[in-house]
Design a protein around this nucleic acid. Structure first.
Length: 287
DNA sequence: CCTTGTGTTCTCCG
DNA sequence: CCGGAGAACACAAG
């Protein structure tokens, strides 16, 4: 489940590897994962050159030299972007708990081969992810649906409050709403609420000023630390060097149901379904 | 059965 | 009856 920190980790690794590279060939083994016109997809990419890699929320945006399109990659739950030069894996994504997997493998649904012989594999076990081309007009529409994201200059306390203003829902549902805040998924939403000492189920209108402030600070702090630790490997995500992300050992509530709270040392972490997702919290020190 | 990110559909309310 | 918000569902596969 790559969220902002995982996608950013992949982006930072990949940007050095594929910027300036010419795409010699594109192989699509599962057309369903191409969410734009198939013929256009193949003809636009073949012979084109990667000029930049950006990210918005959980969406990877790859700029191309010719054709006026951007290549969008969404990893959804189990997508991977793995760069292979020779036999060495140098950029990763979501994998299967083990480093010793073959490339390509049965989940390698889209493969780019660059002019220098290196390759980029888009693997996706559950096939929720996609690649698509977007022209300038569509790009504008898509980006307009993304809210402010932690670590961007726009992510101010004031804008955080504005995004929450008049929402009738819980803080967790709001944090997961990509139109309000982009890049936060289920793991980090729970971790942010814990760091702020606020129950994920709290209705926004009941939050006090200091709690909103704590949630804002926690959002930046948790995401920043997670990027510094190259993301979270909960089930099977692997980082750019084929290693696990390190943030798992910093998780305070996610996946810790039934265990003693690391902060107050009295509460037992609870888990229940909220906002449609598995939600974790400490009943003793989150209010 | 469960898991999740997001797009779509349904439902509620003023 | 309308629009908007939010909840619920759909998707896929292990």
């Amino acid at each position: 489940m790559p969220e902002l920190p995982e996608v950013e980790t992949i982006r930072r690794d990949l940007v050095e590897k594929i910027t300036g590279k010419k795409i010699k060939a594109v192989t699509v083994n599962l057309r369903r994962l191409v969410k734009s016109d198939y013929e256009t997809f193949v003809t636009t990419l073949t012979g084109n050159t990667v000029t930049a890699l950006e990210r918005r929320g959980k969406l990877m945006i790859i700029s191309l030299k010719k054709g006026g399109y951007k290549l969008l990659v969404h990893l959804k739950m189990t997508g991977q972007l793995i760069f292979l030069q020779g036999k060495k894996v140098v950029a990763g994504g979501h994998s299967f708990a083990s480093m010793d997997f073959d490339l390509p493998n049965k989940y390698s649904y889209i493969i780019f081969e660059f002019a220098d012989g290196s390759k980029l594999f888009f693997n996706d076990m559950r096939t929720f992810g996609y690649m698509k081309l977007a022209d300038e007009a569509e790009m504008k529409k898509i980006l307009a649906t993304y809210g402010i994201e932690p670590l961007q200059p726009e992510f101010t306390l004031k804008n955080f409050r504005v995004a929450l203003d008049n929402r009738k829902t819980s803080i967790k549902a709001a944090l997961l709403n990509q139109q309000l805040f982009s890049g936060i998924g289920n793991i980090y939403a729970d971790e942010i609420c814990f760091a702020a000492g606020v129950l994920p189920q709290r209705i926004i209108a009941t939050l006090h000023d200091d709690e909103v402030k704590k949630l804002h600070r926690a959002s930046s702090a948790v995401i920043k630390r997670a990027i510094a630790e190259r993301g979270t490997t909960f089930n099977s995500y692997i980082d750019a060097e084929g290693r696990k992300g390190n943030f798992l050992s910093f998780l305070k509530v996610f996946g810790r149901q039934g265990k003693v709270c690391v902060r107050c040392k009295t509460g037992i972490i609870k888990k229940a379904k909220h906002a449609g997702r598995g939600t974790h919290w400490c009943p003793a020190c989150q209010r």
